[in-house]
Design a protein around this nucleic acid. Structure first.
Lengths: 250, 250
DNA sequence: GTCTATAGACGGATAGAC
DNA sequence: GTCTATCCGTCTATAGAC
């Protein structure tokens, strides 16, 4: 949805639903007018955020110009500054928006106490995020690579507590004999790195395959291959399997 | 070595070894003079390449300015253009230099026909490369993330043939029952992504650990953890283990 | 809320003295 | 081979008409 929005310039700001509702400049009642203006702002901001995400992904923070973002959005350059005071403020909003999506995928990890289900589900959710929003993944990766200057607060205040809590869960699984004795952080980094590789390094994957892009179907197959590799890597065993005497350290 | 060179500005171009050899402007014999000039060129180019690698890693292709590179090298901006016609030419030279190093690490894979040794050795070599040259890894990653426009030739002509040959070796191991039936490319991408993560995402790792950086010792421990995870992921079994009836598909 | 025009800073690249 | 001065293009951001 977001990607499509990023390719559909806004020629006018009168939206279809406004027209259908019969709202015109002549309606003097204050509340609807205020609501409509708020709606315009919201819709243009979202559109600009989607376009900015694409340009930042393609060119990087410094390589992206406000003119490029404006052009992709079908708006004059000055409008970008009307909605976002500076290029950096727009960039930060993109990063915050990305984190929200990342955090929703992270929820998957908490759905089950069975390590095979929880870890497998999380790997699938992260792969799906790479497929659904590869440009966002690239913006995140590029930001971290170049020092994470504009993301330190998000990492420290939001990602770190989540990771710390997951480390505890993993250590607990290990203590209960459901996982091989792995370093939980090393395992998480492997999951992050591997799943994000399919978004961030897609240009390399395409060049090495000699093909255009992964089809939806081969992406799903790859997802299951990654799940299998990760599950075997950490020696995950379901509680039911364990009752049958499986040994995760092998 | 390279990183130290990048932090040591060249104040003069008369090098210690030239002085020791007693070479001065008055020596009119042509050959030594020509050799000395070649030496200056070589040494300044190498120094600029190292400094450029650092600035490109920190700021990206567009974020890096020739002025920054010159300043780090302790040279006026014009000298950068004397040695490299354009900023892009300098950038491409950095990428080529990086590939050479990458290719040397890739050799490790061919040292053994035992999958545990070969894959384990390759993972160690890639981890060591991440530790030794993290800035280079970042330049490579940033280049790929932003479309690999300046690296397509290296990927197609040099990386692709190497990967294709490794896929064949891995498939052969699987056919001989030394590896679980994994997708060789998926496995290779996992190895690349995981090992490079320690160079490219070090800012994130540091933020999430709440510490400054991995010590040499904990980096070695992490390396062995990654080796263990990868070996278990692909179900690698040594030929000797196999004679004792190990089953890699578990 | 939209858009044209432009200020003001900075970037890559070069000329030309030394 | 080194370095100062400078050209010219592009960039972010803003002023101000509509």
């Amino acid at each position: 949805m977001k990607r499509d929005a990023a390719h559909m310039p806004l020629k006018a700001n009168m939206r279809d639903d406004d027209v259908a509702a019969g709202i015109t400049e002549n309606d003097e009642t204050r509340a609807p007018l205020r609501r409509r203006k708020a709606h315009i702002r919201e819709s243009n901001e979202a559109h600009l955020l989607a376009c900015a995400e694409a340009v930042f992904a393609e060119r990087g923070l410094d390589g992206a110009s406000t003119a490029m973002i404006a052009e992709r959005a079908g708006l004059p350059k000055a409008n970008v500054h009307y909605y976002f005071p500076t290029k950096l403020a727009l960039y930060r909003r993109v990063l915050e928006d990305l984190f929200e999506d990342w955090y929703r995928a992270a929820d998957t990890f908490e759905c089950s106490d069975d390590p095979v289900e929880a870890i497998g589900g999380y790997v699938r959710a992260k792969m799906e995020l790479s497929r659904r929003r590869p440009l966002g993944s690239k913006v995140w990766a590029s930001e971290i690579i170049h020092g994470a200057e504009h993301m330190e607060d998000i990492l420290m205040q939001r990602v770190k507590p989540w990771l710390d809590s997951r480390v505890k869960v993993i250590d607990d699984w290990i203590a209960r004999g459901l996982l091989a004795p792995v370093n939980a952080r090393t395992l998480m980094y492997m999951i992050w790195a591997t799943t994000q590789h399919y978004a961030d390094f897609d240009a390399q994957i395409r060049a090495l395959k000699g093909k255009r892009a992964l089809t939806q179907k081969s992406f799903e197959a790859t997802t299951e291959e990654v799940v299998e590799l990760v599950i075997r890597a950490c020696g995950a065993v379901s509680p039911t399997q364990r009752e049958q005497g499986a040994d995760p350290s092998r």
